[in-house]
């Protein structure tokens, strides 16, 4: 079965032990690149394993070689330099959640981290894995798109940088090419008077969401909106970036009326499908309501930020 189709079948199968594979645990990036090159299509990267191991156990998916990047040094740092924050691909979701710089200035990342799975999953899951998995239900992609993050993809050939908005292609399909490893997530420092937020609706504790919304806003000196990015989780084959919002809101203050206009735009950009989590109509309602709440919180945070 193609990997893209695996996701919704996970609910239907029994789990056993994974099929046999060869395990490689390189200590250096260069070694990992050679292994990926050597085994090509027959190799898959393993990070925290919180998405991949359940898939392997289901036997819906199997692969002859696993390249565990978990022992590679230098991919676990968070470095800030005034103009951007650089997050290593192996930083765990728990560490993101606990990071104070992220909590105060990149709030959507912090919010998303705190809502992913449960604390035990977050202790092993990594930011790189959450992004590279390409699951439209993963929470980190929406925060990345709303905050205009860029991803560093490294390989034997060198490095290239891809915008979050261009990275997600289809369900379980991203722009990570054969031989490449996502090594770093680069998030630009928000302007003054900026704030962001991420919210999702879950049916049960620890679950994926019905839908999720990430918002990042900037305000001008008079408190009007000067920037607005919105992205939606679980509302299509990949994370959805809502385009063309900025020109509609520039200079206007957020009030009920504007919030309703923005929510309608966001709902119209979404493409949810009916599944286990609800009908299309229900999901569109959820997305609208989440957008309103998330906007309000992001603007509140932008105002707080202005006071600091």
């Amino acid at each position: 079965m193609p990997l893209q189709k695996c996701k919704y079948h996970l609910y239907l199968v029994a789990f056993v032990s994974p099929k046999e594979f060869e395990y490689h645990a390189p200590a250096e990036l260069q070694e990992a690149f050679s292994l990926l090159k050597e085994h090509g299509d027959n190799a898959k990267i393993l990070a925290g394993g919180q998405s991949l191991i359940p898939l392997l156990k289901s036997r819906i998916f199997s692969v002859p070689h696993l390249v565990d990047i978990g022992r590679i040094r230098g991919l676990k740092n968070v470095v800030e330099n005034g103009s951007e924050i650089r997050i290593g691909a192996l930083v765990t979701i728990s560490d993101l959640e606990a990071n104070n710089e992220i909590r105060t200035r990149f709030q959507a990342i912090s919010d998303a981290a705190g809502l992913i799975g449960d604390p035990l999953v977050r202790n092993r899951g990594t930011i790189g894995g959450n992004i590279s998995h390409g699951d439209p239900s993963n929470d980190m992609p929406a925060a990345m798109v709303a905050l205009k993050a860029r991803f560093k993809l490294s390989s034997q050939q060198g490095e290239r940088i891809v915008d979050a908005g261009e990275f997600f292609i289809d369900t379980l399909q991203t722009d990570v090419r054969e031989g490449e490893i996502l090594t770093e997530i680069i998030v630009p420092e928000p302007r003054n008077r900026s704030g962001s937020a991420y919210m999702k609706l879950k049916k049960t504790a620890g679950d994926f969401c019905v839908a999720g919304v990430a918002v990042s806003v900037s305000l001008d000196q008079h408190g009007g909106l000067s920037g607005l990015n919105v992205a939606i989780t679980a509302a299509g084959p990949r994370v959805i970036e809502v385009k063309g919002l900025e020109e509609k809101v520039t200079g206007k203050k957020l009030n009920e009326e504007l919030s309703a206009i923005i929510s309608t735009e966001v709902v119209n950009a979404s493409e949810p499908a009916e599944d286990f989590y609800g009908t299309v109509e229900y999901k569109r309602k959820v997305i609208g309501l989440l957008t309103g709440d998330c906007l309000e919180l992001a603007v509140e945070r932008a105002k707080e930020g202005a006071k600091r």
């Binding site: 393993l46 394993g49 191991i53 565990d68 728990s94 604390p119 202790n123 092993r124």
Partner: peptide, 16 residues
């Protein structure tokens, strides 16, 4: 616990 942090041991390979 792995290095002091709680994790699900059914979702971790022993080689990890």
């Amino acid at each position: 616990l792995i290095d002091g942090k709680a994790v699900k041991s059914c979702t971790m390979l022993a080689v990890q």
